[in-house]
Design a protein around this nucleic acid. Structure first.
Length: 568
RNA sequence: CGGGAAGUAGCACAACUUGGCAGUGCGCUUGGUUUGGGACCAAGAGGUUGCAGGUUCAAAUCCUGUCUUCCCGACCA
């Protein structure tokens, strides 16, 4: 691309609307333009990057034996009704009606359509296994889009679905996809971790997430400093080393804790509460049952763990009025003793002796409370792990990192094949449901993650195989015939070799060109200036400050070497 | 959906408190001087101040409504 007569622009100043580093840089580099909240235009430069990412994904999916196809984005609502997901998606789904008032939606995910596609082919076990995939636009009406391309309402996704006759065969298909994912994210140059995660609304037995490590990540990853343990905080189990305190249990004792509605106030009244407080929260389940949930001090309830333990679909904190009127206790002074609802206790409390709880009486707590002082209905793991916790796999220490979910792999099982009647005939003439897996990659999130991980104060630093152009030729003096001739010649030579090159022939000061090429992150810069009379040009890498003088006759070979080496 | 902030030239913002010519910087156009890390001088172009209504002799400014965007939270294969 010769810049002088091309669609090329950059923005010098900070973009107010874009808070994330990646969103800001991509808009400033002229790669993205926001249309509306969570909806972006991909400008020519940004689109090239997006295509480069897609190319790598497609290559690895094809290598893994998957077949590409393309599904519609506009889908009759009936399709989702058949698997009962119209309700499950609720407001997340964009919905519309046609002129006859028939209901449609813009597809948020495509399990149903892929299942229908599989039915076209599957009759007997000999038709299995196979894997299908597409790269297609998905629509989700996110309540709060943010962070540039990280959380958007319209986005490009690679989704793949495997179809197998049994679990054993699914394992093979799953592993093939899993390995393809490792290759893809490796080639994209993303620093990522694979973590266990919640199967969530997708159903199924196993779910693993590929998480790009960045501070703006919306997920918390739990990692071990000693072994390879890695988990999403949502599902990370808490382990406790059996360690009954050596303290002897004392008689419980009612103490005045006036106005101690907060933890800080309580510690003022009762200093030992700092380490010995056990808080009690009143939760309401989807079935309108109430439970008193006990946890140690600063532990945080993990609501999905609590749901599982209580065998319900959702829980929420009870309203203040209900707690104070129906249960006869007071927010801030709730405790397990003489309470009329079942008590659910976190495992961590089992090890505690002489702790502090609310007295269900305004302005009073009990101290020196022990397990014998109240009844517990259920004990289990209901809290989020803490950084001080021990690793569930070894005895190492846990650390937390923030991650962006850029891909995931699910073993779906037979949930969709059963609800959508995708059956095959086995060798003994029995009809059996097909065993499915599904595998997603957020293409835009990959792009944003790369920028989040690779940038400096001057702009983006693309890895070679993602960069929209590999080489930028900067001409210092565009009026100088020698310089322009050499630049045009080099540009032609590189272009003929299939190396995507920018020729910055704009009649602006060199600083502007250097800054623009840095901002848009071109990996190699060739500067053609005065020394062209001696056939010398400069070569500089985006990720280094070193400037090398090279003979113009060698420059093509040099670059071919670098590009070949890095274009993985 | 709850809480907060903001909408003024392509971009970033000022003027709003206390109503009185629509401003500044960057970018853009023209001319000149420059020319190796975002040049300088001069002259210009560019606006329904988000939208609708109200108060007033007079509204970017005050009032009401509405739309949009961003941030924190809730939510989220």
């Amino acid at each position: 691309m010769k810049l002088k007569n091309s669609y090329f622009y950059t923005i010098r100043e900070n973009i107010k609307d874009e808070d994330s580093v990646s969103g800001n840089l991509l808009v400033r580099a002229g790669m993205l333009k926001k249309t509306s909240s969570g909806i972006y235009m991909f400008m020519p430069l940004g689109y090239k990057v997006l295509e480069n990412i897609q190319k790598i994904i497609k290559e690895e999916m094809d290598n893994a034996g998957a077949s590409e196809l393309l599904m519609p984005a506009l889908i009759p609502a009936d399709v989702y009704a058949s698997s009962n997901r119209l309700e499950a998606f609720g407001k997340d789904m964009f919905r519309l009606n046609d002129r006859f008032d028939k209901k449609y939606c813009l597809g948020p995910t495509h399990e149903e359509l892929f299942t229908i596609a599989a039915k076209c082919k599957v009759n007997s076990y000999s038709d299995l296994p196979f894997t299908l995939y597409q790269i297609q636009t998905k629509f989700r009406d996110e309540p709060r889009p943010r962070y540039g391309l990280i959380r958007v309402r319209e986005f490009l996704m690679k989704d793949a679905y495997s179809f197998d006759k049994d679990e054993e065969s699914l394992d093979k298909s799953y592993t093939a996809m899993f390995n393809a994912y490792k290759k893809i994210f490796g080639r994209l140059g993303i620093d990522y971790k694979i973590v266990r995660s919640d199967v969530g609304a997708m159903g199924g037995s196993l779910s693993e997430e590929f998480q790009a490590i960045t501070d703006i990540g919306e997920d918390t990853l739990v990692l071990c400093d000693r072994c390879d343990f890695a988990s999403n905080m949502d599902v990370c189990e808490c382990v406790h080393i059996e360690d009954k305190s050596s303290e002897t249990p004392l008689e419980k004792d009612l103490v005045l804790t006036k106005d101690a509605y907060t933890r800080e106030k309580l510690i003022e009244c009762l200093p030992e509460a700092k380490t010995k407080e056990v808080k009690t929260l009143i939760y309401k389940t989807a079935e309108d049952k109430y439970y008193a949930v006990m946890l140690k001090e600063e532990s945080v309830v993990n609501e999905s763990k609590l749901c599982k333990l209580l065998n319900t679909t959702s829980v929420e904190l009870a309203e203040k009025e209900v707690v104070e009127k129906n249960l006869g206790t007071y927010i801030g002074f709730v405790g397990p003793i003489d309470l009329s609802i079942p008590v659910v206790m976190d495992n961590e409390v089992k090890n505690m002796v002489n702790f502090v709880v609310g007295a269900n009486k305004k302005d009073y707590h009990y101290k020196n409370v022990n397990l014998s002082d109240f009844e517990v209905a259920i004990t289990g793991d209901i809290r989020n792990v803490k950084e001080s916790d021990v690793c569930p796999k070894c005895e190492g220490k846990l650390t937390f990192k923030k991650g962006i979910e850029i891909g995931n792999t699910f073993k779906l099982g037979t949930k969709y094949s059963e609800s959508l009647d995708l059956m095959y005939q086995d060798s003994e003439n029995n009809l059996k449901p097909v065993v499915m897996g599904c595998y997603g990659i957020g293409v835009g999130r990959c792009l944003a993650s790369i920028v989040e991980q690779r940038n400096d104060e001057n702009g983006i630093i693309w890895p070679m195989n993602i960069a929209p152009y590999k080489v930028a030729i900067v001409v210092i003096d565009t009026l100088n015939v020698d310089q322009m001739d050499a630049a045009n010649h080099l540009y032609q030579e590189l272009t003929d070799l299939g190396i995507e090159t920018i020729l910055d022939d704009r009649d602006v000061r060199p600083g502007v060109k250097f800054n623009d090429m840095d901002l848009i992150g071109i990996p190699i810069r060739i500067t053609i200036g005065k020394k062209i009379v001696d056939h010398i040009v400069e070569m500089k890498r985006r990720n280094s400050d070193e400037v090398k003088e090279v003979s113009i006759f060698d420059v093509v070979y040099n670059m071919q070497d670098i590009i070949e080496e890095e274009n993985i």
